[in-house]
């Protein structure tokens, strides 16, 4: 590679404590823009915690302390002029269990827009257009265009998860964080979500947590291995799996930790 892509997420000496328990230890990470980066490691190693740092949602728990620096697109997200609301608007999150809101498909997709705009700024036509665009991008339009008024919580799990991705798109996020987005899905659903990730790649920085190593291998360009709150290795996915630099990484990918 001649010109390195710009960095999307960088952290320096990132430490995080849940009360007295240190869940992240001196994490330095550089995640590149426009590619898919996967985050692997045994359960409890802090993958979810790290992901949740990037939109500062950990702070919802009162007992969390964070030190160190986190920059998104070069901007320190702990700067005093950073609005959490705007931050979370540009950094979308997809969860382990699909969590569409208990309202219609249509309302789910426009939920974010309605939250971030005055009522008067949104025309029906603009909303309709946004819904069609987001659902088309996520491959749901064909299936759901006649069921836009159906309850999102009644959809199949795979559609629910795609919808959770679709509802981020109208907000034009820079970064999409996914926390084991396929763990509630079957093989078909998993493949569909992976294809969707490929389709979205380039425009968005995607960070995906997975404990499925095959998925990390298939679906990501770069891979980060974490262990007990520390970042052990970060390299191109092929390199990490074929010639890991750190012996701990090698042990993990050979299946020696659970």
């Amino acid at each position: 590679m001649s010109d390195t892509p710009p960095l999307s997420i960088t952290t320096r000496k990132l430490n995080l404590w849940y009360a007295k328990f240190q869940a992240l230890i001196n994490v330095d990470v550089d995640i590149k823009h426009g590619i898919i980066t996967s985050l692997i490691g045994p359960s409890g190693c802090g993958k979810t915690t790290l992901l949740r740092c990037f939109n500062r949602v950990n702070e919802r728990y009162g007992y969390v302390t964070t030190t160190g620096e986190i920059k998104l697109l070069g901007k320190n997200i702990y700067d005093p002029d950073v609005s959490l609301i705007e931050l979370r608007k540009s950094v979308g999150m997809v969860f382990q269990r699909p969590n569409p809101l208990p309202i219609s498909v249509y309302e789910n997709v426009v939920f974010g827009m309605k939250i971030h705009h005055e009522r008067s700024q949104l025309t029906r036509a603009a909303l309709d257009e946004a819904v069609e665009k987001a659902l088309t991008e996520t491959g749901l339009w064909k299936d759901l265009k006649d069921r836009l008024d159906h309850r999102a919580t009644a959809l199949q799990l795979e559609q629910q998860q795609k919808l959770c991705i679709a509802r981020l798109l109208p907000l034009k996020p820079e970064i999409i964080l996914m926390d084991e987005p396929c763990s509630a899905l079957d093989v078909e659903g998993t493949r569909a979500i992976e294809e969707l990730m490929f389709a979205l790649k380039g425009r968005y920085t995607i960070v995906i947590v997975t404990h499925n190593m095959a998925q990390a291998r298939r679906a990501s360009d770069e891979c980060i291995f974490m262990l007990l709150g520390e970042l052990i290795e970060h390299s191109r996915t092929e390199d990490l799996f074929l010639k890991p630099r750190n012996p701990k990484t090698a042990e993990y990918i050979e299946g020696r930790y659970g």
Partner: peptide, 15 residues
């Protein structure tokens, strides 16, 4: 999870 979904698109508590 419903609340988290809202917070993660930047909704305030009142919203």
């Amino acid at each position: 999870s419903f609340r988290e979904a809202c917070w993660n698109v930047g909704a305030t508590r009142w919203q």
